[in-house]
């Protein structure tokens, strides 16, 4: 069952990679050195990346109910 929350990275990401190191399931990639991208399907919404992010650009979003 998918978690209720997932991480969303804002456009001001500095792509430092702090989030990569703390993601327990490796659901984060740095897209071409520009921005961190979270695989929202795999993300378990633990929030470790948001806590670690020095730029404060990661938010936890509620998943929309599947229609």
């Amino acid at each position: 069952m998918a978690s209720k929350r997932y991480a969303l990275v804002g456009k001001d990401c500095v792509s430092c990679g702090c989030c990569l190191k703390v993601c327990p399931i490796g659901a984060i990639n740095i897209w071409k050195g520009v921005v961190a991208v979270v695989d929202s399907q795999r993300c378990v919404g633990c929030g470790r990346c948001a806590k670690e992010c020095p730029a404060g650009v990661i938010e936890l979003m509620e998943r929309r109910a599947e229609v």
């Binding site: 969303l8 500095v14 071409k32 050195g33 520009v34």
Partner: peptide, 24 residues
């Protein structure tokens, strides 16, 4: 890391090379 000049410079280089980042 947020304002590290090397990080800012390398991100600028990547930005120029990569084009439009994905919509998240």
């Amino acid at each position: 890391c947020v304002f590290c000049p090397m990080g800012t410079m390398t991100q600028l280089i990547c930005r120029v090379k990569a084009g439009t980042p994905p919509c998240q």
